[in-house]
Design a protein around this nucleic acid. Structure first.
Lengths: 219, 219
DNA sequence: AACTATGTACGAAACAGTTAGTTTGTCAAC
DNA sequence: GTTGACAAACTAACTGTTTCGTACATAGTT
């Protein structure tokens, strides 16, 4: 029984580990989920705190107040989705193929980022007032328009697309069709008694959306 | 001029007028506005009460609790809009004209009922759970599908529309384009720096939507 | 030592919902 | 056609809880 323990029996991890970046990220991710799920007024700071590895104190330490946290969650959502968008490359493709690919990509992308869609819905309920306050979101440049404009211009030059359309309006239409599919699934399915979220239904809607855009721009 | 009348000198309006229907309606209309503006968790019972000619106690007297009030506001919104929809008549028109009229009508109708759109957005944020609880809303029969189905069938019979499309999907597309225009105006305008709510922009989007549907169903 | 990061406990306001009544309408009995 | 009893409609003030935010203390880092 001599030197029973120079070995630090305290497997107990050191009482307090400092990890500012990790804490921040943890809070932001948790908050993003909670805001996307419950909205700004519906989300509870205490709930968010409880779901983090951190505490309420830290939320206020890093984000100031509830609105500050919300705005950063909003920025986070936009940034994530924009980063994803940048991955689309249609340069080598002929216009029709390129447009098809863009629409399919947008459809899938929306579908994969339901939390983003929900944040946008929530922000629209607030008339976009927090978006307006955010320099970050306004600063994110929007590649979506450039992409579709490039495709459209090529199509017009090649004579396969008709002239006189507005790329922003084209983007608007693609967005509308892809966004609605995610945003209004709950009410639409319940009212019309048919689940539009099944893989089969989605595949049809996706193909319809492509077809719709192709026909719309066709010369 | 003898019998001037039994003019009741007591201008004092009778201390308390009982008007159950009026009170109920007043509360419901006020609540509908507040919920559409702020959402379920964002709306405040005290605020709603203050804006009525009635009191908080009466809200609980007639509607039970906040959720009960919300559900009735939701039902109210759906009923109002459905009643409006019923006014559309396309029977005499040739298929293409009929479809154009239907799309234009839907576009305008959405535009005129922003509060309804907002209620639907809010309800989708809640995954449609209150809609599901409401027998009233589920009971409202949906003429929209019948309308578009009738037009589409005629078009196919006449050979001007292609076969094999699903009326529900057609309705979905029209809804998506018309709904998004109202629901996402705030964020879309702010992000792309162009107001899509001006009369000119709206007129273009409206015409695009019509054109889009016509081209999609064209044989 | 000085600054950053974190934990605990609490305060104040906001909020949904209630208690304890009062007033008004109505209808049957006188 | 007045009365009185009873239910429906209504008011004001109150209660208990939730919720945002903070004060204060302590531990880690440089």
């Amino acid at each position: 029984m001599s030197h029973i323990k120079p070995i630090r029996k305290d497997r107990e991890p050191p009482k307090r580990v400092q990890d500012p970046d990790g804490t921040r990220r943890d809070i932001l991710e948790t908050a993003s989920r909670e805001f996307a799920l419950n909205g700004l007024s519906g989300a509870r700071i205490d709930d968010i705190a409880a779901r983090t590895r951190s505490s309420k104190r830290m939320i206020y330490y890093y984000f100031g107040d509830k609105e500050g946290l919300y705005i950063q969650a909003l920025e986070n959502a936009y940034r994530t989705v924009r980063d994803g968008e940048a991955k689309l490359d249609t340069e080598g493709l002929p216009p029709r193929e390129a447009l098809r690919k863009l629409v399919e990509f947008t459809f899938d992308h929306h579908h994969e980022h339901e939390d983003f869609i929900r944040m946008v819905m929530i922000e629209n309920i607030h008339h976009g007032e927090y978006l307006e306050r955010s320099d970050v979101v306004r600063g994110l440049n929007v590649t979506a328009i450039d992409n579709i404009a490039a495709i459209y211009d090529r199509g017009v030059r090649d004579g396969v697309f008709r002239d006189g359309l507005d790329p922003l309006e084209l983007h608007w239409q693609v967005s509308a069709l892809c966004f609605f599919n995610v945003s209004n699934r709950a009410t639409f399915s319940k009212i019309f008694g048919r689940d539009i979220g099944t893989p089969e239904a989605l595949a049809r809607l996706r193909e319809n959306t492509v077809e719709m855009m192709l026909r719309f721009v066709a010369a």
